[in-house]
Design a protein around this nucleic acid. Structure first.
Lengths: 193, 193
DNA sequence: GCCATTAGTTAAACTAGATTAAGGTTCTGA
DNA sequence: TCAGAACCTTAATCTAGTTTAACTAATGGC
């Protein structure tokens, strides 16, 4: 199937697979489509799956006591997304994950993932690297949120994800930057003068 | 050597090792002591090592353009610390790491780590799990920094690390919470009334 | 195709937390 | 042992970003 090629390409950035391995790999994943606005995971549920996005766009976010959404991650094509805490420890998810656009993805359960590591041990390396990279990007995000003002954080966001800046509504970008849409509107306007 | 026992215990929380493996493991690590205030890593250098703390306390922090320090992580006994970006990609570190107390630790280089994975493949699992947990805690910290006010973040800090709250000077805790020492003083006083 | 919801703009009033400053205490190293 | 450094407190002033509100533009579900 066409969908697997993106995943295989992604894995092959880090290690090489022979044809048998590629064939085996497929058995461990299921394919799923989500409509725009559809939930992939809701707060309080257990995140049985980790998702690799083929196309479209997802987000993971936390809803605070006042009902405000705080976006931790966007995932477009070629990215992984899950609630890592819930996925690895089978605890109730604190995060929600839903689709911002119609989205296609490949899913794997934690159980299947662990079996996969036994069947094709080098995939443990792949997921270690993916996780290292995820850790790095959260660390970076935390660092920026502590040391930069909103206009600088927005400037970095544009530089890092120019496509997302055009593709996503301003409310979502504001919820990612940790500011209100009102203030993002102000920042954008100051930038345009 | 006595020092290795803590590391082995830590590994054995996640998988079991036989005596031969324990013996092999030792070859990959070096032992190091740091005096209080001594650097383990300076911004701009390459983080050749990842450190497992045996006793004492370290911190990783970022110094912003105005010279203010923002602490990303404290590491006391039984914790790992490094600049993951620099360690895995051999890029110039953005972070500084130094000792807040006299500290003893075990070090491993990235090259040795990768060799270790070949020699004892199940240790790749160990480091995958350690990295998953690191990712979870950064994710959690980001989430709190976005959705909670300083007094609530401080309350969580006390709950999570009661020992550190007593052990560390207020300046360091403030730099971890992302507030000024002046404001932390205020929070503490309001709490005591 | 229309009405209701969602998204964006602008501006005024407000607040969490920063900054500055001054005074007091506790560490530390030569 | 003592001088400078690091640490802590309190209070006044300031500011980045929020809140509220009133208006306009774009979407989408029936």
């Amino acid at each position: 199937m066409e969908e697997f090629n993106l995943l295989i390409k992604n894995i092959e950035k880090h290690l090489s697979l022979n044809e048998t391995e590629k064939e085996e790999l497929r058995q461990f994943f299921t394919f799923k489509k989500l409509r725009k606005r559809q939930y992939f995971l809701q707060e309080g549920d257990i995140s049985h799956y980790s998702a690799f996005v083929i196309n479209g766009c997802m987000r993971s976010y936390y809803v605070d006591v006042n009902g405000f959404e705080h976006i931790l991650q966007f995932a477009i094509e070629d990215w992984w997304i899950t609630d890592m805490m819930s996925f690895t420890k089978k605890t109730e998810a604190k995060l929600n994950i839903d689709a911002l656009e119609d989205t296609e993805m490949l899913l794997i359960t934690r159980e299947q993932q662990l079996k996969l590591f036994e069947k094709i041990p080098k995939l443990e390396k792949y997921f270690r690297i993916i996780t290292e990279n995820g850790l790095i990007s959260y660390q970076n995000r935390l660092l920026e949120s502590m040391s930069l003002h909103a206009p600088e954080r927005y400037a970095n966001f544009i530089k890092r994800y120019p496509a997302l800046n055009k593709r996503l509504p301003q409310t979502q970008i504001a919820a990612y930057l940790g500011i209100t849409p009102v203030f993002l509107s102000k920042i954008r306007n100051i930038n345009n003068q």
